[in-house]
Amino acid sequence: MTAKVLKRKLALRLKRKRRVRAKISGCPVCPRISIFKSNRTIYVQAINDVTATTIAAASGKTLGIKANKDGAVVLAKEFAAALKAKGIETGVFDRNGYLYHGVVAAFADALRENGIKL
């Protein structure tokens, strides 16, 4: 892919991200669960938008998992345990401009299976 194509692809994702973020917000009881994926790994964090702080975070890099559906399920299990340790049972899912498909959908479904309501 050329640089021009990649630049447009990123610009379109950021446009989708802003559109989604305009509609959702996290609070201490129901934080925003934001996912970021690269070609190598997946990062996720629970954010309290009222005070602009991160409540909990997990990274596929520290767990040594790849950015695929199986890795997303493992990361969701670890992240759900971290959220439950903080006493959080619900959250608002922020797909961060990505399509709700593949790795993103697998992560969200695994969070629901592990007891976090989205």
Rank of each mutant, 00 (worst) to 15 (best):
M1V: 12
A3W: 00
K4F: 03
K4C: 07
K4A: 05
V5R: 08
L6P: 02
K7I: 09
R8V: 15
L10E: 15
L10I: 15
L12F: 05
L14D: 14
K15H: 11
R16Q: 11
K17A: 08
V20D: 05
R21L: 05
A22E: 12
A22W: 01
K23I: 10
I24N: 02
G26A: 11
P28M: 04
P28R: 07
P28N: 10
C30V: 14
P31S: 14
P31Q: 07
R32W: 06
I33V: 14
S34M: 03
S34K: 05
I35V: 12
I35R: 04
F36L: 03
F36T: 13
K37G: 09
S38Q: 03
S38M: 07
N39W: 01
T41V: 03
I42W: 01
I42Y: 13
Y43F: 15
Q45F: 07
A46E: 04
A46D: 06
A46K: 00
I47K: 00
I47T: 03
I47S: 03
N48L: 04
D49S: 14
D49E: 09
V50L: 09
T51R: 13
T51I: 10
A52H: 15
A52M: 09
T53N: 06
T53V: 12
T53Y: 01
T54Q: 04
T54D: 08
T54H: 01
I55G: 00
I55P: 06
A56E: 06
A56Y: 12
A57P: 04
A58Y: 06
A58Q: 05
S59P: 10
G60A: 08
G60E: 09
K61D: 14
K61H: 10
T62F: 04
G64V: 08
I65K: 00
I65Q: 02
K66Q: 08
A67G: 08
A67N: 14
A67I: 11
N68H: 10
K69I: 10
D70P: 08
D70L: 14
D70Q: 15
D70G: 15
G71F: 07
G71L: 01
G71D: 07
G71P: 07
G71K: 06
A72D: 09
A72Q: 01
V73K: 15
V74W: 05
L75I: 11
L75F: 14
L75K: 05
A76D: 04
K77P: 03
K77Q: 15
K77R: 13
E78R: 04
E78S: 13
F79S: 10
A80Y: 04
A80H: 00
A81D: 15
A81W: 02
A81P: 03
L83P: 12
A85Y: 00
K86E: 14
G87H: 02
G87R: 12
I88V: 13
I88L: 01
E89M: 12
T90C: 14
T90F: 05
G91Q: 08
V92Q: 05
V92T: 10
F93S: 06
D94E: 05
D94H: 04
N96I: 06
N96D: 12
G97K: 02
G97L: 01
Y98C: 04
Y100M: 13
H101N: 12
H101K: 06
G102H: 05
A105T: 00
A108N: 11
A108V: 02
A108I: 14
D109L: 11
A110C: 03
L111N: 02
R112M: 02
E113N: 09
E113S: 08
N114D: 02
G115E: 08
I116G: 01
I116Q: 04
